[in-house]
């Protein structure tokens, strides 16, 4: 899994996706092919900025093994001000999270491959204010 993570570091550490210059559609995660324009697609990388709004969320109680220590954690769909929607964790109190909440990006650790494996970092979100 190392190469698979490494390949996408740029897009995980910051919110870098792609925009199709033919139709203007914006994609996160990045695509090298626009599903709308297909072969006419002209993809360009773009940073979608720091902020967005919670579209929906859930507090996850039954966690995968690698997230056992984080239980419970919040997963949300966030509509970025820059366009696309991203699936991400939101770090805040359960009582704070709500649909429509304004959030901003934060660089955080997602999980680790045990005590001797690599650490997977990425983008999470925290309340904007």
């Amino acid at each position: 899994m190392l190469p698979r993570f490494w390949r996408k570091i740029k897009y995980r550490y910051d919110i870098v996706g792609t925009v199709c210059e033919t139709c203007g559609s914006k994609y996160y995660p990045p695509r090298n092919f626009c599903p709308i324009c297909r072969r006419k697609s002209k993809m360009k990388e773009v940073n979608f900025g720091d902020k967005g709004e919670v579209v929906s969320y859930t507090v996850v109680h039954d966690t995968p093994e690698e997230y056992r220590m984080m239980k419970p954690y919040i997963v949300a769909l966030i509509k970025l001000d820059g366009g696309p929607t991203i699936t991400s964790q939101v770090v805040c109190d359960e009582s704070e999270i709500h649909i429509g909440m304004r959030v901003k990006k934060a660089f955080r650790k997602y999980f680790e491959d045990g005590e001797d494996g690599i650490i997977y970092y990425g983008t999470k979100f925290v309340p904007e204010s």
């Binding site: 550490y13 220590m69 984080m70 770090v91 934060a106 660089f107 955080r108 650790k109 997602y110 650490i119 970092y121 999470k124």
Partner: peptide, 13 residues
């Protein structure tokens, strides 16, 4: 620090 914070995340922020 929170469980998902370490020297790397603090440095980046």
């Amino acid at each position: 620090p929170d469980l998902d914070e370490d020297t790397a995340t603090i440095s980046v922020e």
